[in-house]
Write a protein that binds this DNA or RNA. Structure first.
Ligand SMILES: [Mn+2]
Ligand SMILES: [Mn+2]
Ligand SMILES: [Zn+2]
Ligand SMILES: [Zn+2]
Lengths: 130, 130
DNA sequence: TCTCAGTTTAGAATGATTCTAAAGTGTTGA
DNA sequence: TCAACACTTTAGAATCATTCTAAACTGAGA
């Protein structure tokens, strides 16, 4: 718990009760993909009731500080990813799950980048089912 | 215009005034990426005022009939793509534009597909800027 | 302990999208 | 030709994830 406080402090985030609970859950060593809603539900199961506003605030604070990645897979909810390494995903819309692809995927055959633009990131989403 | 009517009929879509206008714009031979809002704006420029409800209905009707693809790039709006071939995109969030990548991109190094799942589609998004 | 900037939160607002239900229109069989 | 009806369009209300507001709260430093 003091590690969590230090962790938050070292990221310019005041270690409040709520942030400690959320960070404790998110950064427990297991990579996770959460939405504001799913995070709220998980914390509630653990008897930690935190307002949705704070959950949104915190996810964004963590995101702004590079502790989370943001994933857009469907237009009706945003996923946050605790795995901040460059990686890709298997995604099942039907079963609503995401699996990291950490292997070194190679994307070849790209045409030249549009004029005056540079590539920021290549995202590969492997859609499962239909 | 009669080609458009035939085109709609052949896709089980009754050729109404609105659908004819929308199809005429969307399927003019140039590939397009539109949102309900951008489509509404373009049609308005051409003096075709169609209610947003109908624009949404029509985009979905076309989508359901395989005339359009749906793209999720950001959580706050949905893009429809008139290019229904398998292809990928360059995407600039900043400048809000999409460019098709029709070349045969190869994605190699994928780990094995999750148990009991099969790959539906591999989507590659090349994010520009930052 | 005092003070204040940084946080949390309830509740309102936002905005893209969907829904409702009433009016309008293509299609078709007679 | 045209009545009849299923399919469409549409204004306006509803939905819902997310953001905003403003007031109460709290961590950190002195
Ligand atoms: Mn929205
Ligand atoms: Mn929404
Ligand atoms: Zn991930
Ligand atoms: Zn495209």
């Amino acid at each position: 718990m003091n590690d969590i406080k230090q962790f938050l402090r070292s990221n310019d985030l005041r270690p409040t009760k709520q942030r400690i609970v959320i960070a404790g859950y998110l950064f427990d060593g297991t990579d996770k993909h959460v939405t504001a809603e799913s995070l709220s539900t998980e914390l509630a199961k653990r008897k930690h009731i935190i307002s949705l506003a704070t959950i949104y605030n915190t996810l964004h604070d963590f995101y702004e500080n590079g502790l989370l990645k943001k994933l857009t897979l469907t237009s009706d909810r945003v996923y946050f990813d605790t795995n901040t390494d460059d990686h890709h995903h298997f995604y099942s819309e039907k079963d609503q799950f995401l699996i990291d692809i950490n292997k070194n995927i190679e994307v070849s055959g790209l045409p030249k980048t549009p004029k005056n633009k540079k590539i920021n990131k290549i995202e590969v989403i492997v859609h499962l089912d239909k």
